[in-house]
Nucleic acid binder design. Structure first.
Lengths: 123, 123, 123, 123
DNA sequence: TTTT
DNA sequence: TTTT
């Protein structure tokens, strides 16, 4: 079991690219406010596939989002040193800014996005 | 382990009362939209203590909220029949309507509310 | 967002069947102990696909499991009355009885089972 | 909202100490197996209060546990460089080794431990 | 209806 | 009984 749920705001615009095998990959950072209003924690978020595309397209720095995902340890080498950090792999991203509820009455982009990209999800 | 995380909207105004021992108790129902936009699920939510008061004071029918809590089985008797249902006991409620972000720059009621007033530890 | 995480024990043997479209469906009930040892809550669990098969094959009444899933409201009619109840749709089931850690050194069935076999809806 | 749920095993013995203000603090590291059996992720876990004491007393390297908690960003300075890492603050720890289910039929230490230390929780 |  |  490895499950994470967060609500927060992007601290910068989501950056999307395609990997060599053609899969969309978005990286972004989230600010999660602490319970009693004293500051925030900042985490790195990694998103794959169709929701990576949707997130890059429909959200930006400051957007409020809800995330369902899991924790992952990323490891790499730098100067012969093993380094590692914890990131959140988002499996669902819910867009929580209802600014567009006027202009988007059907709420099509508000709500969870599908996990996968290699398929058919209407979006 | 018993952990639930939801984002949704109240389907009616939260109803608060005080129990005999003076503890605030709010009951409300939440609509949680399904992933692919096809309908919603409706759940009953029970809130205790200070967040019960805050929820009743600052949210209403239609308010968007994030909930951290746990599942609980409520049981009772009716006509000599044992009945039971599942409710969510919310230990934190995050108010997600940023309408008030203008009028409430310090964001005091936006964000998680403390669990406790002055009593026992629910967590 | 709709996310549930539980640890508990099956209160009865998982019952598996295949739906008309050939998808495995397992129903079972879980007992989740409360924090301070006073009793338990009982919830109904619904499992689809390959993990439905694995759960039916490798677990039984009394098995300890961890569940990742989501809440779902089931509705039906009885005597012209609309009825409804809350169930947990398990998207992952982790088998926590390490009795078999001897006989199953590779731990292949201990740990999360994949959600799907070969089809739609990864989540 | 900031919620994490994990099942895994301690990679080393939990190390407990008391802070200056007399609060118990346990640090430990957890290995969480990936879904399809390919490897594990390793995370640092921080535990406060009574459950810090219980965890140090009743678990050790290799113990299987379930954790409910939240993510926290720890920051510090090293060589004039700002550094930061993500840790899990465990608010509940469930002991999942049922070795003692024989010798401990009442299961008193199996199950969640309370969060706080400044009180009375029977344990 | 209930698990350990 | 239901929210947007």
């Amino acid at each position: 079991m490895n499950s994470v749920n967060l609500i927060g705001r992007w601290t910068r615009d989501p950056e999307m690219r395609f990997t060599q095998n053609g899969k969309a990959l978005t990286k972004v950072s989230i600010a999660v406010n602490r319970t009693f209003g004293e500051g925030a924690d900042f985490f790195e978020v990694v998103i794959w596939g169709k929701i990576a595309e949707n997130t890059a397209q429909y959200t930006k720095k400051g957007s409020k989002v809800g995330i369902e995902g899991r924790l992952q340890q990323e490891t790499w080498e730098k100067d012969g040193q093993k380094r590692s950090k914890v990131v959140i792999v988002a499996e669902r991203v819910e867009f929580l800014d209802n600014k567009n509820s006027q202009s988007n009455p059907n709420n099509e982009i508000d709500g969870f996005q599908a996990i996968d990209d290699d398929d058919d999800i209407p979006f």
